[in-house]
Simulated scan of single mutants.
Amino acid sequence: MELGAFSVSLAVKDIKKSKDFYLALGFEVFHGDESQGWLIMKNASCNIGLFQGMFEKNILTFNPGWDQNAQEQSSYIDIRQIQKELKAKGIEIENEIDESGKGPANLSIIDPDGNSILLDQHI
């Protein structure tokens, strides 16, 4: 199952301190707005999202239809098809999406250890 670009979305306490820390590790600001409390940091093919005050814990994030540079892929599995496959495998969907729709949508699942996984399709 192809889930798209992967990143870790970190719930941070102080976005400036977190940004400075990841800059020191060689990451660069790729996207976002620090004044709004979110940044996407990039180091080669590794992406980390920094989010202050947006959610309580860290989230594993996949973006169907995107590569690691947030560029649309010419071929990808739509999130609605992914949802069907997850449900067929007995995986509980936190916020099901309308499978008859199209375009941007997101869903969440929880792994056996309580880790949140977000599938967020932007196209």
Results as ranks from 00 to 15, higher is better:
Gly4Lys: 12
Leu10Cys: 09
Ala11His: 04
Lys13Ile: 02
Asp14Cys: 06
Ile15Pro: 02
Ile15Phe: 14
Ile15Ala: 09
Ile15Gly: 01
Lys16Ser: 13
Lys17Glu: 12
Lys17Val: 13
Ser18Asn: 07
Lys19Ala: 05
Tyr22Ser: 04
Ala24Ser: 15
Ala24Gly: 14
Ala24His: 09
Phe27His: 07
Glu28Gly: 09
Val29Met: 03
His31Ala: 14
Asp33Asn: 15
Asp33Arg: 09
Asp33Glu: 14
Asp33Lys: 10
Glu34Trp: 12
Gly37Pro: 05
Gly37Asn: 06
Trp38Ala: 01
Trp38Ile: 13
Leu39Thr: 11
Leu39Tyr: 09
Leu39His: 08
Ile40Ala: 14
Lys42His: 11
Ser45Pro: 00
Leu50Pro: 13
Phe51Trp: 10
Gly53Glu: 11
Met54Gly: 07
Glu56Ile: 07
Lys57Trp: 05
Asn58His: 14
Asn58Val: 13
Leu60Ser: 10
Phe62His: 05
Phe62Ser: 02
Phe62Leu: 11
Asn63Phe: 15
Pro64Val: 15
Gly65Ser: 10
Trp66Val: 00
Trp66Asp: 09
Asp67Asn: 14
Glu72Cys: 08
Ser74Pro: 07
Ser74Val: 03
Ser75Asn: 08
Tyr76Pro: 01
Tyr76Met: 04
Tyr76Trp: 11
Tyr76Lys: 05
Asp78Phe: 06
Ile79Pro: 07
Ile79Gly: 08
Arg80Glu: 09
Arg80Asp: 06
Ile82Phe: 11
Ile82Leu: 14
Glu85Ser: 13
Lys87Met: 12
Lys89Ala: 15
Ile91Gly: 06
Ile91Trp: 03
Ile93Val: 11
Ile93Arg: 10
Glu94Arg: 09
Glu94Pro: 00
Glu96Asn: 08
Asp98Ile: 08
Ser100Met: 02
Gly101Arg: 13
Lys102Tyr: 12
Gly103Val: 10
Gly103Pro: 09
Ala105Tyr: 08
Asn106Tyr: 10
Ile109Asp: 01
Ile110Thr: 15
Asp111Lys: 02
Gly114Cys: 02
Asn115Thr: 06
Ile117His: 01
Leu118Ala: 08
Leu118Asn: 12
Gln121Tyr: 08
Gln121Phe: 07
Ile123Met: 09
Ile123Asp: 02
